[in-house]
């Protein structure tokens, strides 16, 4: 009995510690990404960006978070209060759950389930419910239009994200993230699968950007059209949750891309194979490159119109994707993968 008790408390303690660690990582990553976005934006826009608070302005986002914390939480009179307050948690918690299965290195992975990839796509699509709730319950026409756009957009692009990942699963034969990375010891999947893998990667990047509602697919916010879209009526920390979740979602999409296409924590050509603790460095480094790519999109592209978004998905990406899966199957069938 006592044995059981100690093992039980032990594992609970362990779980709590890990959870706290992830929460800490979550907060720091969010803040850093916000800072990075500002610096990258400034770099594109001939500005300096935040550079006063702390070294290189690193503390700027913390100052902003403090400001948001101290702000009054306003809301509309006729809002559905329960749903209105629930929405930000929906968005941020789903982002947090997805973080659990990411393999930061060979050792650091909280939750290595055998349906890892499926779990990730499933969880990341739950977040849209929060956006729909927020837009609908705030009793604001702009927010409602934003939420409707979000629903339409996410449901459509979910397909492309899923199918482009499925193309790669044909190569790995497993949905478990650690196994997917293991397979790539013979070469990253984007090299192994060459042409169809490249197509899958392009589609994944487009659809992934759309999933996170970032420019050029930021119709959900579309500040020049809808004010602030679905979070028009949110202020203070509730707004900050939406804001933070956007960045974490971006991190997750980038991380999936790294795991599935670029070998996760594996070093290029195995140059640091003898130093496994460098895995986290490679993983985060590659993720940051993909994140930079997404920021690059945001600060150079104009926004699409709502019907163009749907045309792009249903008339172009989806058919290409379906053909691509067949193409990949043929490649594997004929043993045409490139392996070192």
């Amino acid at each position: 009995m006592t044995d059981l008790f100690t093992t039980y408390t032990g594992s609970v303690l362990q779980m709590l510690l890990i959870a706290a660690g992830y929460l800490g990582f979550f907060a720091i990553a969010g803040l850093l990404l916000v800072w990075l976005e500002r610096r990258v934006a400034a770099f594109f826009q001939l500005r300096l960006g935040p550079n006063r608070v702390g070294p290189f302005g690193l503390m700027q986002t913390i100052a902003d978070a403090l400001k948001l914390l101290s702000k009054e939480l306003t809301g509309t009179d006729k809002a559905d209060k329960f749903l209105y307050n629930l929405a930000p948690y929906f968005v941020i918690i789903t982002a947090l759950i997805a973080l659990a299965v990411l393999p930061f290195s060979q050792q650091i992975q909280a939750f290595d389930i055998n349906i890892g990839l499926f779990f990730l796509t499933a969880v990341s699509s739950v977040g849209v419910i929060g956006i729909l709730l927020g837009g609908w319950s705030s009793n604001n026409k702009y927010a409602l239009i934003g939420a409707m756009r979000s629903g339409v957009q996410t449901v459509s692009y979910e397909l492309s994200v899923g199918l482009s990942l499925l193309t790669m699963v044909l190569l790995t034969g497993s949905l478990q993230l650690s196994e997917i990375i293991e397979v790539q010891k013979d070469g990253w999947l984007i090299v192994q699968g060459h042409v169809p893998a490249l197509i899958a990667f392009l589609i994944f990047m487009i659809a992934g950007t759309a999933e996170t509602n970032r420019a050029p697919f930021d119709l959900v916010e579309a500040e020049s059209e809808l004010g602030a879209g679905f979070h028009t009526e949110y202020s203070g920390m509730k707004f900050a949750y939406f804001f933070l979740a956007e960045f974490i979602n971006m991190f997750i999409i980038a991380a999936i891309a790294v795991v599935v296409f670029f070998g996760g924590w594996l070093s290029p050509f195995g140059i640091t194979e003898s130093l496994p603790w460098l895995g986290a460095f490679w993983f985060l480094g590659k993720t940051l490159v993909i994140i930079f790519l997404m920021m690059w999109f945001r600060w150079t592209f104009p926004r699409l119109r709502v019907d163009q978004i749907l045309t792009l998905e249903w008339k172009y990406l989806l058919p290409i994707n379906l053909f691509n899966i067949v193409f990949m199957a043929v490649i594997i069938w004929l043993n045409l993968e490139i392996k070192f």
Binding site: F44, R47, A215, A222, S224, R298, W299, F301, P302, R303
Partner: peptide, 12 residues
Amino acid sequence: GMDVGALTTFMY
């Protein structure tokens, strides 16, 4: 540019 969503044009 800002209106169609390309934010960088404003600074240029």
